[in-house]
Simulated assay, not measured.
Amino acid sequence: MNWFFLILAGLSEIVWAYGLKMTHGFTDIKWSIITICFMFVSFLLFAKSMRTIPIGTAYAVFTGIGAAGTAIVGIVGLGEELGVMKVISLSILIGGIIGLKMIDKKTAKTEDAAK
Rank of each mutant, 00 (worst) to 15 (best):
A67D: 05
A58F: 09
F62V: 03
M50Y: 03
I53Q: 04
R51A: 13
Y59Q: 12
A47E: 04
C37R: 04
G66W: 02
A67Y: 07
T57K: 02
V61G: 04
V41K: 08
V41S: 06
S49K: 02
A47F: 12
A67I: 12
Y59W: 13
P54K: 13
F46T: 08
G66F: 02
A68K: 00
I65Q: 02
V41G: 01
F43C: 01
M39W: 07
P54H: 14
F43Y: 14
A58S: 13
V61C: 09
S49P: 00
A67K: 02
R51Y: 10
C37S: 14
T63D: 08
L45C: 10
T52G: 15
R51E: 14
F38L: 08
I65H: 08
T57W: 11
A47P: 00
F43V: 14
S49T: 01
I55M: 14
F62L: 05
R51M: 13
F43D: 05
G69N: 09
F62P: 04
A68V: 02
S42M: 06
L44Y: 15
F40C: 13
L45P: 03
V41A: 12
I53P: 01
K48P: 01
F38H: 10
T63A: 15
G64F: 08
F46C: 12
V61A: 11
G56R: 10
G69R: 02
A60C: 11
M50L: 13
A60S: 14
A68E: 00
F62E: 00
F38I: 07
F46E: 03
A58M: 12
L44A: 14
P54D: 15
S49Q: 02
S42T: 10
T57E: 07
F40T: 13
G64R: 09
F43K: 05
L45G: 01
